[in-house]
Write a protein that binds this DNA or RNA. Structure first.
Lengths: 350, 350
DNA sequence: GTTAGCACTCCCGCTGGCTGAGTGCTAAGT
DNA sequence: ACTTAGCACTCAGCCAGCGGGAGTGCTAAC
């Protein structure tokens, strides 16, 4: 793996200059413009030599001979890992983020939806936020009520305050006392059970019940078979339009690729999941370039950070944009926001 | 207003030929290609003369001198009103649509979401479906239950089987017997009340209550103040991607306009609402060209049809695509599907 | 009233020259 | 040994000019 020692100071400064310049202008950057924009005390010719070296090492690339250079994935990676000095948020910005979270937000889904909007707004990129998945959510309360002769509504409240309902049509009529005992039964046996293991939990206990209880348990199992299980975790995506304003997605073909990516959310959730598994450290993980399992889309990057509930990581939030992004700002935004989300959720979930 | 009598038969046949040709190829159509594709027994020169007349009357236009003609809005309108012979659905297609609706669909939202998907799939355009608005929905059942010391969930089931929930944080603790009486109270007074008039209904009766009942009523009012009122009716939109495949939206600027339109759903709902008000007849209404209140988007058309519940029109479904659309097929699809939706909803709502 | 013929218009794609930004290389300077 | 100035070279982007092709309008003949 490339290490910080692989580049001497001059090379580092020039790589940094190139990345910074390219991030703001989106134009390939040449030796002359580097010495003009950044005062390096060097001549264009020297810079050219260094840039040629950097290209040989795989940090820069030319789109064609005799055009300026642009960073490669490795170039961005090096920049992010060693060169970038994180740009702290101003007090103003911090206040703004905090202000957004003082609003009435009743459950985790609302918090995360709001988060994705906030990230999009504040970064001018696309905001991503993954809701806590069923493997991190527990039943807090479960209730069944009749809404018609053959119709019941099952309602599940999880530990993040989220309410899910599922209406079920039954063939037989279920009396009120039967419902009563069903609700009682469900609450007794499913309290604090993980949302993705409801059916299983009932099933396991099913054989231990006899007669009366057994009938109730069987009914419960049937209901849960129809329960609202999001197999995939829900992903909130906001501000997708910002991407299409970027010059790299002006071409129709590119734009379509991005559009398709947004339609097919599984690619994004998988990517976030991997990021969550990979990165053990607290801070941002940055994904640069092509997302696995997607065609094209080489110039998409994601800055993502996990959020926690009671010190356990339960999901990711992030910002998605062109590879050419102001990482130094975005990492701060994402980290800070993830902190806020963690606090909100920890408060919500008791 | 233009009437069928304004065009003689030859003019009608040529207009029809031009529209048909343009709909399939998206290329401006010239006199020669008309006589080749459609056997009119006329020479190109004659056709040219007629086309010049049609242009003068405002049914055709040239994108530049000496290019073929394309239909104007008026041209499409004339075609749709007088020339188009509705293309009946094949048995296969009808079966397919019916098959789609045999699935388990528990409430109106599911029906209409499914409808928008179906329309998109079957037409290769974008499918639209508006959920029944609050002004057409009634309370079937309303329930309040505690989920925490200071937290209650209010659950409203409407006559279309839809379940809405709203969690509310209260400052004081509410006892179980108080909740019981609250639920009782709400059901007693709000059964069959329109969803957009809940607060008002309580408010009106508030003054007639005394003491005990009054306290309950006030609590109810506070809860309803926080109730989930979709101000706007919900709009399901599916298959937006199909539009971007059409040649007329290849340009980046055009594509963005469409994208923005989809983001800002109010424009679409307003448009459907107008269509619902305008058209008194049973069948499809067809909207051609620019949508009010939107910039650009001159070449968007919508084929829409109302759906009914117990003979009352309560919403619209439709197909959105480029102005150049195979209307003769789409009208059948939309009409037939609207019929299915009406049946489904009438069955659901009892 | 219809048609053939003809001149005309205009888009579109192709080519070629020009410019400007940028590079690599070499030779001279420190 | 490194740095720098100079120079030749490359290549995208732009503009102009040039047919070719599709289509039109008009006129004269049928």
């Amino acid at each position: 793996m490339t290490d910080a020692r692989d580049l001497n100071e001059r090379e580092q400064r020039i790589l940094q200059a190139v990345v910074n310049s390219y991030i703001t202008t989106a134009d390939p950057v040449g030796s002359r413009s580097v010495v003009k924009r950044f005062e390096l005390g060097l001549s264009p010719a020297t810079v050219r030599n260094v840039m040629a070296d950097l290209e040989e090492m795989g940090f820069l690339q030319q789109i064609h001979t005799s055009s300026g250079r642009i960073p490669t994935d490795a170039g961005y990676r090096y920049y992010v890992n060693y060169l970038m000095h994180v740009q702290e948020l101003t007090l103003r910005e911090r206040n703004r983020i905090e202000h957004e979270f003082t609003e009435k937000l009743n459950d985790a889904d609302e918090v995360l939806q709001h988060t994705s909007q906030l990230l999009a707004l504040i970064s001018n990129q696309a905001g991503l936020a993954e809701a806590p998945g069923d493997s991190h959510a527990y039943v807090n309360r479960i209730e069944v009520m009749a809404v018609g002769p053959h119709r019941v509504v099952m309602l599940i409240v999880d530990n993040y305050g989220r309410v899910r309902t599922q209406t079920v049509n039954l063939n037989e009529t279920v009396g009120p006392e039967q419902l009563q005992s069903l609700s009682q039964f469900l609450n007794d046996h499913l309290y604090r059970v993980r949302l993705d293991g409801l059916s299983q939990a009932i099933e396991e206990r099913l054989k231990t019940f006899l007669d009366e209880r057994r009938k109730t348990a069987e009914l419960a199992l049937r209901l849960l078979g129809l329960a609202p299980q999001h197999g995939r975790t829900q992903l909130f995506l906001e501000g997708a339009g910002h991407l299409f304003a970027q010059p790299e997605f002006q071409g129709v073909d590119r734009a379509r690729e991005v559009f398709d990516l947004f339609e097919e959310r599984t690619v994004l959730t998988d990517m976030l999941r991997n990021a969550l598994l990979d990165e053990k450290r607290i801070s941002c993980s940055i994904h640069i370039g092509r997302i696995d399992g997607s065609k094209g889309l080489e110039d998409i990057s994601v800055v993502a950070s996990p959020y926690y509930c009671k010190d356990e990581p339960i999901g990711m939030i992030g910002i998605l944009g062109p590879r050419r992004m102001p990482y130094s700002r975005l990492t701060s935004i994402v980290d800070y926001t993830a902190g806020m989300v963690s606090r909100m959720l920890t408060r919500l979930a008791r």
